[in-house]
Simulated assay, not measured.
Amino acid sequence: MSTTLVAVCLLTTGCAGRDDTASAPRTAPPASAPHGYVAGAQEKAEQQSRLVLNAPRPGDTRVLDLITGKVHEVSRTAGTAELTTDGRFGYFHTAGGTHVLDAGAWMVDHGDHVHYYRAAIRDVGELPGGPGTHIRSDAAVTAVTDEDGRASIYRRASLEKGKVGSARTLPGTHAGAVVPYAEHLLGVTDDGTVAVYDREGKRATSPDARCEEARGDAVTRRGVVLGCADGALLVREDDGTFTAEKIPYGSDVPEAERATAFRHRPGSDTLTAPAGKRAVRVLDVSERTWTRVKTGPVVSANTAGEGSVLIVLETDGALHGYDIATGKQVSQTKPLLTGAPETGTHGNAAPVIEVDRSRAYLNDSKGKRVYEIDYNDNLRIARTFDLDIEPALMVETGR
């Protein structure tokens, strides 16, 4: 069923930071704060998903609240080459630096239970480093690795209060992103050595492991996955000890077909990555196995994991669902994109597939819309959100 958005909240200078939660009075924490209490935020029983959307050329930016269906207009960020997220903050990578937007929706995973929060949307400030900068976070710190491999560590609490704050710099340079994990920082040095640091930036005991030509990373419940020339490296922590396990491709893989950028549902142990022009490589971290799924010409791909289909946007503008175990196509939509889809070349942003626990989202830039897909029901179009901008860049927060 198609839904046209009818409510737009303007977050201008006069009402910056407002949404449906901002009108609530800011109260001091109770004398006996309940478990999970966060000042200035509302705790909810379900995931509070929001999409951050950007049209790079004019710089128009919107936040689409998937719970209320409202679209929030926020300050413009022009010239965005890449939009990334850590689950709460949107990072707009431009030539002049990285603008930080608090999307006001996030979750806190305690392992045996999860807390979901919503709060006001607000601008935070600027981080150094433009296109090519990697930003990774955990509950305590945010690591910013610039295109030259220098990593700076920021306190997460400052960002949550609306300030960038000061940074601590790690020694040396790194290939790919420095990743916060298990109260430490994990990186790969330029010579391919896996390095572990404490949060003060001092070297800690590291596993005896290497990752040649490191590109791509993902944090899963099983550990941190690093993309390497010969496959993946899974780095795990147990009672303060870090170990590393190689998950090889099993055969020689041409450079153009290596997994160098992973996409997955946050919390899932099933990762996807394009494998050349007509295939997708799927990594089951739990089983330590790779599967190469032959597809049509790939624009983007993702999966919810745990028995769900592999969702592939192909150059025909349609979404195709593949059974990962058999490689057979099991579902397909009509063409959804207006015009031929961009492929990410020549400075154009390719459409992306964002996946959460129940739905997937696809941005149609030229059509000025976002599709909500029920991937458990043969890729059924559940809702269509019409917009007043071309959402060339999209990330999902609140997961």
Results as ranks from 00 to 15, higher is better:
139 A>V: 00
180 P>L: 00
260 T>S: 02
336 L>Q: 08
299 V>K: 09
137 S>P: 04
11 L>N: 08
40 G>D: 07
37 Y>T: 04
72 H>Q: 11
191 D>H: 01
335 P>G: 10
332 Q>Y: 00
108 V>I: 11
30 P>Y: 07
59 G>A: 14
103 A>T: 12
35 H>G: 12
399 R>Y: 11
197 Y>I: 06
34 P>D: 14
6 V>Q: 14
283 L>I: 02
133 T>H: 08
254 P>E: 05
82 E>F: 00
22 A>S: 12
31 A>M: 14
256 A>N: 06
125 G>N: 07
150 R>T: 09
21 T>C: 15
319 L>C: 03
299 V>P: 02
143 A>H: 01
355 V>Q: 04
162 G>I: 09
83 L>N: 05
124 V>R: 02
163 K>F: 14
137 S>F: 00
284 D>C: 12
346 H>P: 10
217 D>T: 08
365 S>F: 03
155 R>P: 11
379 L>C: 02
244 A>E: 06
294 K>F: 15
196 V>Q: 10
48 Q>G: 13
222 R>Y: 10
246 K>L: 15
361 Y>Q: 10
112 D>R: 15
258 R>D: 13
159 L>S: 08
97 G>A: 13
373 I>D: 05
216 G>C: 10
163 K>R: 10
396 E>W: 03
342 E>D: 15
154 Y>C: 15
318 A>C: 12
330 V>S: 15
